[in-house]
């Protein structure tokens, strides 16, 4: 079990009102599983993803990631978990605009305290892997959307995380680039990486092994299995 959530609730304070965003979520993923979360805008997908990604703590409930109780983790420990065990891919890429593709990919290795030479080797390797071996010195604004997202995937994977979290990874891409990203996810999945992907595109969701629906902060009881 790579992750296991029981009774997760998340409330936001809106002025004096507490707004419940996630209500009593039970959710788990096996190691190596490929899951898509679908739901309308504002249903709490990103909020759930933030908790899974150790960017945020739940208001109540328990959450174990790779056997560790995240509810009891310090801020520094959460940073380290994000660094070592989690890879993030965002809808809007989130690349540092002034750094080359290579430096963007090498950034997490820098935080992991890896020496410069090895950093460059591993970042280059990761870029080759996503088919951008010839674009290493390009700045983000010299790359297309699809290429940017592939740089972001290389960055997410460079530290060999246990789980890849992708929040609408194809949301800002045309369908062809989106397909390339999906192909990449497929091959990572085949290598045994666990993937949790948010999307509201049913076509994209169908690449996953399992689709979970979220509505008004509740997971749909019946988890829809695809084939």
């Amino acid at each position: 079990m790579i992750l296991q959530m029981n009774g997760i609730c998340k409330d936001y304070l809106q002025g004096k009102m507490t707004v419940p965003v996630l209500r009593d979520i039970d959710f788990s993923m096996e190691e190596g599983e490929y899951v898509a979360i679908m739901g309308p805008s504002g249903s709490g997908k990103t909020t759930l993803m933030n908790i899974v990604g150790c960017l945020d703590q739940a208001t109540s409930g328990t959450f174990f990631l790779d056997g560790e109780d995240i509810g009891k983790c310090s801020d520094n420990r959460m940073s380290d978990i994000r660094l070592k065990k989690i890879g993030f891919v965002f809808q809007n890429f989130q690349l540092l605009p002034r750094q080359s593709a290579l430096d963007n990919v090498a950034l997490p290795l820098c935080y992991a305290g890896i020496a410069k030479k090895e950093r460059h080797e591993r970042a280059a390797e990761a870029l080759e892997r996503v088919g951008l071996g010839d674009r290493m010195d390009f700045k983000p604004n010299q790359l297309s959307g699809g290429q940017k997202q592939r740089v972001a995937i290389a960055r997410a994977m460079v530290n060999h995380p246990k789980i890849l979290l992708a929040d609408e990874p194809t949301g800002a891409l045309d369908s062809k680039s989106g397909e390339q990203v999906m192909e990449l996810f497929e091959s990572l999945h085949r290598e045994g990486v666990s993937i949790l992907m948010i999307t509201h595109d049913a076509g994209i969701a169908s690449f996953a092994e399992r689709i979970v629906e979220i509505r008004d902060g509740r997971l749909k009881n019946r988890e829809v299995e695809t084939e």
Binding site: G53, L55, D75, N76, S79, D80, R82, L83, K84, F88, Q94, L96, L107, P108, Y111, A112, R155, A156, N159
Partner: peptide
């Protein structure tokens, strides 16, 4: 935010 998300400590 990005740097913190990918694991930079405070």
């Amino acid at each position: 935010g990005l740097k913190k998300a990918i694991g930079a400590r405070k």
